[in-house]
């Protein structure tokens, strides 16, 4: 199947400056060699804890931040080396929905102006046509047409997110990067917005990169799920596979930590120690192996830990600290066969 989006070995490093001369004294490896792809009409979920680089990855894909290295190919075209001017027509096709609709919407603009703005920027339609389009978009995301003349702050969190979604789909994009779109919403509103995203995908054939920290939400909306830890992907597989047959220790820990909404179930969890380490000075070897204090950690220093295919469409980091012995043997074979 041809892919809509291909990300190849993408890196985003931010400089850390210090001293009186603000010299570069190091770098934050926010995204450190990520490869993934998304097919037309597909949702790839991206999950990880705060600071793992998932938002930066999303922003690098829509070029809100400039990648340090690697390739982002959209519909066969390489976005990474394009100038801003060449990029502009492509921006129509890749849109973003942010976590906080309050901060991402301009408070001085009416809802109509917020939704209309991208149409104006891209020179689409006459005034009357845009007016009709706004009414149509509001209806599509489940807001009354009368809302067009009101201001974003007059709406609740869930409605504001609907406005953000209406704006994102105004240009009929092919890919929408959703960065924690439901994290700030109450549960009953969260399910409304998730249903809306699923419905829009079915009707418009959208692809999503759905970024969130809540694995249950991500699993619910995604076809495939990628798990990110400290700037790298550690596992990627179909949504059901990730849940039923997680291979990587970090994926298991994430699944295990989710509180179970069932009081009859006896919970016995192995608690993960410590916090997510800093991406400024990441461990030299397996980052999660380091957090676990794994006895084989030293082996992984300088080792190629990139993901290998362990089953059909199931990729996992070739990391002896984080895989069961037989799983590691399989990825080691895959590595040797390269």
């Amino acid at each position: 199947m041809s892919k809509l989006l291909k990300v190849d070995d993408l890196k985003v490093h931010f400089p850390v400056r210090g001293g009186v001369l603000r010299r570069r004294i190091g770098s934050v490896r926010a995204v450190d060699g990520v490869s993934l792809d998304i097919a037309p009409g597909e949702t790839l979920g991206l999950v990880g804890e705060s600071g793992c680089g998932k938002s930066t990855l999303g922003k690098a894909i829509v070029r809100l931040v400039k990648p340090t290295a690697g390739r982002v190919e959209f519909d066969g075209r390489d976005l990474t080396r394009m100038t801003q001017a060449r990029l502009r027509p492509l921006r129509r096709e890749v849109q973003m929905v942010f976590q906080d609709p309050v901060e991402s919407l301009n408070a001085r603009l009416s809802v109509r102006e917020v939704i209309e703005e991208p149409l104006i920027i891209h020179g689409i339609g006459s005034r009357a046509e845009r007016r009709r389009k706004v009414a149509e978009l509001l209806d599509r995301v489940g807001l009354p047409a009368s809302g067009a003349e009101r201001y974003p702050f007059e709406f609740s969190g869930g409605q504001r997110q609907r406005i953000g979604i209406a704006r994102a789909i105004a240009l009929e994009p092919k890919l929408v990067v959703c960065d924690e779109p439901v994290s700030a919403l109450d549960v009953s509103v969260q399910s409304q917005v998730l249903n809306l995203l699923l419905e829009l995908q079915r009707e418009l054939g959208l692809s999503y990169l759905f970024i969130a920290h809540d694995l249950a939400v991500v699993k619910h909306i995604s076809d495939r799920v990628a798990v990110m830890y400290l700037g790298k992907l550690v596992e990627m597989a179909g949504a059901e596979t990730i849940y039923r047959e997680p291979k990587h220790a970090y994926t298991r820990a994430l699944l295990d930590a989710i509180p179970e909404p069932d009081p009859t179930r006896e919970v016995r969890r192995e608690l993960l120690e410590g916090d997510v380490p800093s991406p400024i000075d990441p461990p030299k070897g397996s980052a999660f192996g380091h957090r676990l204090g794994h006895p084989r950690y030293d082996e992984t220093i300088g080792m190629d830990l990139a993901m290998r295919e362990i089953g059909p469409g199931h990729w996992v980091s070739a990391d002896p600290c984080c895989l069961a012995a037989e799983d590691y043997a399989r990825v080691a074979d895959a590595k040797a066969a390269e």
């Binding site: 869930g158 409304q192 249950a216």
Partner: peptide, 24 residues
Amino acid sequence: KGLLASIPRLETPSKTVLPVIPGM
């Protein structure tokens, strides 16, 4: 009932419509 039904759970199959509490 609405609250309990509307949370996405790991056991429910992916990409299914969640029951919602309408309105706000």
